[in-house]
Design a protein around this nucleic acid. Structure first.
Lengths: 145, 145
DNA sequence: GATGAAATTGCCTTGGG
DNA sequence: CCCAAGGCAATTTCATC
């Protein structure tokens, strides 16, 4: 990852649908040179993909929660990931320091759907109990710059 | 937003660099028809933009934390937002139910940078104290599907 | 559908190891 | 000397009217 790769990534973070020529004009490369770099960054996994930023209200998924997960005994992170990734309402999850084992970020259309998803998580054999806070209003949601 | 718009958004969430023809093949429309819908969704604000998903390790911002914020007395959400948005390490924030007033998601290059950012937050006049958990390993990070 | 722009590919050049 | 990376040009595909 040289400094040019960083600039290319910066352009794509700002607008993932920019043409290679536009990116090239920003960073000082020809369009094919940019394409080759982007292809390489995707192949190497540095760029995981491209996505759209959607106004959450439009999707109608307005009920958001952060859930602390407490497990029974010791659970491997990989095992936890497998349990959580089957629940589509889970948009993020990470193992954390402190008394909880993991912090899970969930998004659902309403409280009812959130409750059903929570039940699915609690039913996992390695999950002991959960502790949730509901999001009242989202203050900041920056795309990882 | 009819069901076709939903499908179009689904395609763009999956791959923001898909061509209009590719999206059309998925959803059963011609390329120009898809373009008109995408243009309309962008103009209406339903699609806020397009971005790349970058492996956080590559950016070198590997230190991540979730911080519960406890305020003095009652603080308006808007006031809290103004305080937090001046700290670039804050990538997300929301007011929440429970004993904490807000949950703040932070990303920094290392623990030292994280600590400095936390100090800035604690120095805000309306902040009483904070309680942080550090992310050990990220299990899931789904683009809002 | 037609026209112009963009993506993609092959080939050659150049600079650094 | 070889390899990695870039530019140029030709072709195919896409965007756009």
């Amino acid at each position: 990852m040289d400094p040019l790769d960083g600039k290319v990534i910066g352009c794509l973070l700002h607008n993932a649908r920019a043409t290679f020529a536009e990116i090239g004009a920003e960073v000082g490369l020809s369009a094919p040179a940019v394409k080759r770099r982007v292809d390489r960054l995707v192949a190497s996994g540095a760029i995981r993909g491209f996505t759209a930023l959607i106004d959450p209200d439009v999707l109608g998924w307005q009920t958001e929660a952060y859930v602390e997960l407490y497990c029974k005994g010791t659970v491997a992170p990989e095992e936890l990931r497998r349990s959580l990734e089957r629940v589509p309402e889970v948009v993020g999850a990470a193992t954390v320091s402190g008394t909880a084992d993991a912090l899970v970020h969930m998004l659902a259309s309403d409280v009812k759907q959130l409750e059903r998803a929570l039940e699915r998580i609690r039913d996992e054999p390695n999950v002991d109990h959960t502790r949730s806070v509901i999001v009242l209003s989202r203050l900041i949601d920056r795309p990882r710059t």
